[in-house]
Every structure is written in structure tokens, then in C-alpha cells.
């Protein structure tokens, strides 16, 4: 096969494209991308600036908008850290250990991907309400989760978990255990091996998963609104404020928050790409 491929090489140089359908497939791809994604996103980016940059700045620096952005991004960061910690343990257990029911545990991890966010929202709200299974246990200690900012954290942790587990898992299972043996033969304790050999090797995947969980959490809406109570300045997330502004026909104001969130997702996307090329270089 490879000899045949080699023989073809000079021909390929003359005839630039061997396989047909390039124009059609790329044309349709770019057309569809433009209509569905690029034009509407342009409409978003332009909209808030109809009031000039000053108007845009004024729209996003009101205390209520700032509070909602701080809540969405702050809690998303907090949730991503929780997810990376427990995601690491879960991925480790799934890759390294053998126990009955492991397949079920593995399949369940994707539940937040598959379960509609509204369903997750009403379920979490029922669980964490003061009379719910979990909320009821916490009330005697004065801990309230539903209808407070902590509800935002719980919902974001729920939806972010698969991202950290699923980015770590394939890297962990591909990682050769030779280096751990080498560390052990050189006299390292198990803890030293884990924290100075294993974890640094998994760092790119861990950061990638954390960044993805953060991005997903910051933009999340469905699972949060049922649980958070949605009090302005306290537990009102940025996506909800966008909807509130739309309902008041404040399109420019809604678009201004949308642009900030879009800019944040762009930065995250760039960061993820950088992380991936860093990981590729280390391999």
C-alpha cells in the first residue's frame, strides 16, 4: 500500500486534487457556517455599539450587570476547581482500579451531557430546597443552598463534571506506567511519584478539562435558574439578566452582556487551543 502511495506521489503533484467534491463540500460548509453562526454573531457584536463605545461601557458597568457577571464567572471558576479535584479522583478510579459496577459508574458520568438542563434544574432544586432530601439535612446547620448563590455553585458543579473526567480519562489510560516504575526504582515514595511524576504529566489535560468546565458553567442557564432564586445583585446570573433585558426590549443592553460573554468564550477558546498545542509539544 505504501509503495503504491509512493508511486502515486508524482501524479498527485501534477493533479492537485485527487479526490472530488472539494468545491461543493467546502462551499456548503462555509455557506452554512456563515448563515447559522457568523452573520448572527456579527449582529450581536455590532448591536451594543449603536450607542457608541461609551454606551456599551455604561451598559456593562451598572452594578446589577457587574454583580451578575461576577457571580457567573466567579462561581464557574469555583465549580471548575471542584470538578477538577473530584474529576481527577473519578478518572483515576475508573482508569486504575477494577471493581464491580465500574461500567455503570463510567456510563453515568455523561449524565449531565445527556440530561436536559431544565430537568437537572428542577431535580436539583427539589433536592436542595429546605424541605428536600439534601437541603433538609443541611438546614439544622444553618446551611442554605437553594435560592442562594450556593445553588449556582451546585448546578455548575453538576454540569461541569463530565468535562474534567472525560478529558483526563483517555490521557490517563494512554499514559505508560514505566515512568512510575522508574520513579519507584529510584527510591521515590508512592506520594512523591504521584505528585511529582503523574500529576505534572496530566497537567495539560487537567487544565483543559477545568477550562471547559469553567466555560460551560459561566454560560449555563437552564439548570441554575430553578435553583438559584434569581435575586438581583445576589443570585442573578448573567444569562438570566440577558433574558430580563430582552423582555424589557432593551436589545442593546442584552447584547452588551452577550458581547462580554462571547469575548470571554473567545478567550477561553484561545486558551484551550494554546493548552492543546502545549500538550502536543510535551508528548
Amino acid at each position: 500500500m505504501s509503495a503504491f502511495g509512493l508511486a502515486l506521489t508524482p501524479m498527485k503533484l501534477r493533479q492537485r486534487r485527487v479526490l472530488p467534491g472539494f468545491g461543493l463540500s467546502l462551499g456548503f460548509t462555509i455557506f452554512y457556517l456563515t448563515v447559522i453562526v457568523l452573520i448572527p454573531l456579527t449582529a450581536l457584536v455590532i448591536r451594543p455599539f449603536e450607542l457608541g463605545f461609551g454606551g456599551f461601557w455604561a451598559a456593562i458597568t451598572t452594578p446589577r450587570v457587574l454583580a451578575s457577571l461576577r457571580l457567573s464567572f466567579g462561581m464557574a471558576a469555583f465549580a471548575a476547581v471542584i470538578d477538577s479535584f473530584f474529576g481527577f479522583i473519578i478518572a483515576w478510579v475508573l482508569v486504575r482500579y477494577r471493581f464491580p459496577g465500574k461500567g455503570l459508574l463510567d456510563a453515568l458520568i455523561d449524565l449531565p451531557f445527556a440530561l436536559p438542563t431544565a430537568v437537572a434544574g428542577i431535580a436539583l432544586s427539589t433536592l436542595y430546597a429546605p424541605n428536600g432530601w439534601i437541603g433538609g439535612l443541611l438546614i439544622p446547620y444553618g446551611i442554605r443552598i437553594a435560592y442562594t448563590p450556593w445553588g449556582v455553585l451546585v448546578a455548575m458543579t453538576f454540569i461541569g463534571l463530565p468535562f474534567t473526567v472525560r478529558t483526563l480519562q483517555p490521557v490517563m489510560s494512554e499514559q505508560s506506567q514505566d515512568v512510575e516504575e522508574a520513579a519507584a526504582t529510584l527510591g521515590a515514595t508512592r506520594a512523591q511519584t504521584i505528585f511529582r511524576v503523574v500529576v505534572p504529566m496530566l497537567l495539560p489535560a487537567l487544565l483543559t478539562g477545568t477550562a471547559m468546565a469553567f466555560a460551560r458553567g459561566a454560560g449555563e442557564y437552564g439548570s441554575i435558574i430553578f435553583l438559584a432564586g434569581n435575586l438581583p445583585m445576589i443570585s442573578e446570573i448573567a444569562p438570566l439578566l440577558i433574558i430580563t433585558k430582552l423582555e424589557q426590549y432593551d436589545y442593546a443592553g442584552a447584547a452588551a452582556i452577550g458581547v462580554v460573554m462571547l469575548a470571554a468564550s473567545f478567550v477561553m477558546l484561545l486558551a484551550l487551543n494554546a493548552l492543546q498545542s502545549w500538550a502536543a509539544r510535551r508528548r
Binding site: 438542563t117 442557564y221 448573567a238 430582552l246 452577550g258 462571547l262 473567545f266
Partner: peptide, 12 residues
């Protein structure tokens, strides 16, 4: 990586 709400907003 776009928030679902922003995904709806752009069409509005």
C-alpha cells in the same frame, strides 16, 4: 463555547 442564552439572543 457560546452560552445557550447568547445562542438564542443572536437570532433575536
Amino acid at each position: 463555547s457560546v452560552s445557550p442564552v447568547v445562542s438564542g439572543l443572536i437570532y433575536v
